[in-house]
Nucleic acid binder design. Structure first.
Length: 240
DNA sequence: GCGACAG
DNA sequence: ATCTTGTCGC
């Protein structure tokens, strides 16, 4: 791994390069990624799940974390956190070009049955959110779980755990707005790759316990944030 | 023209 | 995203 081009189904995808700030070109890349997404369950098994997240420090320094959990017990099996340098600015709808590279580095060496990403999947204007980029790149099942909406519209789901409404855009269903805790705002769940929306919802809800965010993401975020505030991270002038 | 806008 | 503990409200 670590390569700019990634093997995936039909060949090499120019998912990464030190992306140039040519949004027209990057939007084309996203459409190509969107075409390759499979919205069907292609899980071999569901014994483990990985949570992937990135925490930001000042400027372009950040920490990417990947935590592998047992799907049933949610016990942490393995975890990895790395300091990364971001090479692309945050531009709504182009998040993948900012975070995918670092996320891949945190995932290196961690093989899970499904990967949960702290961002959207298909619930994206071009149906190619970060979770889709990751899924197509790894050729593994992924789902996106976000705290806020990027596009589309939906009714507010009832205040009951497990209640959800469909997120729609341009006549198509792109995700779901899922209530995990009765008293908290809902979360946005969408397919990343090789999963059906129903399965993605089942996984998000099934791995959520006493918090609004599912455990894989909560733990990954904790790990990344803790590392970012650690001496080790602050003292190393240049993080790679 | 005026918002909206994952992290 | 991040700076940040307790606290006001339902």
């Amino acid at each position: 791994m670590g390569s700019i081009y990634t093997e995936s189904g039909r060949g090499m995808l120019p998912i990464l390069k030190p992306p140039k700030l040519d949004l027209e070109e990057l939007a084309r890349v996203q459409r190509r990624v969107a075409e390759q997404v499979i919205e069907e369950d292609r899980l071999e098994k569901l014994e483990t799940i990985a949570g992937c997240d990135i925490s930001f420090a000042e400027g372009d320094r950040a920490c990417a974390a990947c935590v592998l959990l047992d799907y049933e017990s949610l016990e942490v099996i393995k975890q990895k956190v790395v300091a990364v340098k971001l090479k692309f600015p945050y531009i709504p709808t182009f998040l993948a070009f900012r975070e995918l590279e670092g996320m891949l580095r945190a995932i290196e060496g961690i093989d899970a049955d499904v990967y949960m990403v702290g961002a959207h999947g298909r619930a994206h204007p071009r149906r190619a959110g970060l979770a889709c980029h990751l899924g197509v790149t790894l050729d593994k099942p992924t789902l996106g779980v976000a705290k806020g909406r990027l596009c589309g519209t939906a009714e507010e789901p009832p205040r009951r755990r497990g209640a959800y409404t469909l997120l729609k855009d341009g006549g198509e269903t792109i995700g779901a707005v899922l209530r995990v805790l009765p008293g908290s705002r809902p979360i946005y769940v969408s397919v990343g790759h090789k999963l059906s929306l129903g399965k993605a919802i089942e996984i998000a809800l099934g791995t959520a316990r006493d918090h609004r965010l599912p455990e894989p993401l909560r733990v990954a975020h904790q790990l990344a944030t803790r590392e970012m505030r650690s001496k080790r991270f602050k003292s190393c002038a240049q993080s790679w």
